[in-house]
Design a protein around this nucleic acid. Structure first.
Length: 272
DNA sequence: GTCCAGGCATGCA
DNA sequence: TGCATGCATGGA
């Protein structure tokens, strides 16, 4: 992969194993929207991005070298060799055809606060509704980034809301979880940065102490927001997949179970 | 009307 | 420790 900066854009050539719709709309992130021209727009850490891909060339519109280095390189996981990872996953004959069919799913390194909130909202909920709730949350309490674009609101901002405020967004019974979560993060009772530095088991234990966070939500947050690629979320779809692995997960998933999980999750949603 | 969705807290054994 | 139950909401 090579990078250049032309006309204000970041241009990446020879990009391998990166499918935009599969990566941005596979249920790991809830804020990317496809545009009429096939590009995708979203806001990450308060910065708007429009990204498009033709063949092996990716264009990040209006992106400085600083923003690329500070945000997007890590967010899209560009330094990780997904070709090699996919080859390794395909040592398991069950996942091999799935990796081929949905080739190009990457794990996004999302902001830990946004990921944790999003997956608390996600519980016992469907993806369409999750997107709607998060969209209303950002429009109502986020900062305006550009026309119609808003940042994900900070814990400090949300710590000033009541349970009723969260209910008004359609969060249902999850409102009380979000209300306490925002106050605990804003008040320093929960230290997300500290959790990033722990081992997977220790980090999971910390997240499980949070009101409204169980094993599934913890694993999603760990995988999508805290950089733990071995976290393996099991929801109702993955429970169906697990029937195909009665003896547990294959050895070739070790260390990258979360990436395997995302391929299997996508397959399950389309086939089961 | 019933069932379901990237589940969890609670109470009870 | 494990299991049953209630929970908000909206689409199918």
């Amino acid at each position: 992969m090579e990078i250049s900066f032309k006309n204000g854009d970041a241009v990446l050539t020879n990009v391998k194993c990166f499918n935009l719709p599969l990566t941005l709309d596979c249920g790991q992130a809830f804020r990317w929207e496809e545009q009429r021209d096939g590009s995708w727009s979203g806001v990450v850490k308060g910065v708007f991005l429009n990204i498009s891909k033709n063949d092996d060339t990716v264009i990040l519109k209006n992106t400085t070298k600083e923003n690329y280095e500070n945000i997007w390189k890590n967010y899209f996981d560009f330094d990780r060799d997904y070709e090699a990872i996919c080859q390794r996953l395909k040592q398991d004959s069950l996942i091999a055809p799935t990796v081929d069919e949905y080739y190009g799913i990457r794990i996004l390194n999302q902001d830990s606060w946004e990921a944790l909130c999003s997956f608390v909202i996600s519980q016992q909920n469907n993806i369409k509704r999750i997107k709607g709730i998060i969209d209303r949350l950002c429009r109502t309490y986020g900062d305006r980034v550009c026309d119609g674009c808003y940042s994900f609101p900070s814990a400090e901002r949300l710590s000033r809301l009541s349970v009723e405020d969260f209910e008004a967004l359609g969060t249902g019974y999850r409102a009380k979880y979000l209300e306490r979560l925002a106050k605990d993060v804003a008040g320093g009772k929960i230290d997300l940065e500290k959790i990033k530095g722990l081992s997977l088991e220790e980090a999971r234990k910390e997240l499980l102490n949070i009101y409204g966070v169980g094993v599934k939500v913890a694993n999603c947050a760990l995988l999508f927001g805290f950089g733990f690629y071995d976290a393996f979320p099991v929801d109702v779809w993955m429970k169906r997949v697990m029937e195909y692995y009665p003896n547990g997960l294959p050895e070739c998933f070790d260390g990258i179970g979360g990436i395997a999980q995302q391929y299997l999750f996508h397959w399950a949603r389309n086939n089961l």
